[in-house]
Amino acid sequence: MVGPLIPMGVIPETWNNVIALLLGVGFGFALEASGFSSSRKIMGTFFGYDFVVLRVFFTAAITAMTGIFYFDYMGWMDMSMLYINPYYVMSAIIGGIIMGFGFALGGFCPGTSFTGVAIGKIDAMFFSGGLFIGVFIFSELYPLFQGLYNSHNLGGAKIYDLLGMRDTVFAFLLIVAAVAMFYGAAFVEKKVNKVEY
């Protein structure tokens, strides 16, 4: 069975929603069990008292990436068929900065806020409500942002192409960087006073 299964037509599309629900359960469980339903735990990464976000995020990214690379190498999966978000240079950076601002105020990101909602965090419910309002505002004001939103389109660009290196080299460096960050995080955590939350 060569993946990705649905685009290759191995699994009929009628299964789509069931699969979505099951994968979502796994996603939600992993987030909540790691402590992402607590905004103060999440914010620990920025103040140095709890690096759970950094650890989970980068472990997840390099795990999935390694899996994809090995499956592609073994011929079990076609990496070139995976969807790549188009890279609109300005829009991605500005969007990221706005999200960072929202992150610092709200203490969640959309995925984690939903797990917060699931366990009854009222602040997470307000954050999720805010998401809907934010998307609504953006859509209503879209004519104002349209130029920026659509400028500098590089298509489904890969980071290693932009840096002019081979994909395998970048993947290796990313793994090394992640491990180095984990080591650094443990070091910082020891120095910073514990915060009770």
């Binding site: 999200m99 929202g102 610092a104 709200g106 969640f108 997470a124 805010g130 609504f136």
Partner: peptide, 15 residues
């Protein structure tokens, strides 16, 4: 939290 959510909503559409 509400303000953060609004900002995140706007930002996620840009990005």
């Amino acid at each position: 939290a509400l303000t953060g959510g609004i900002l995140f909503g706007v930002g996620s559409q840009f990005a």
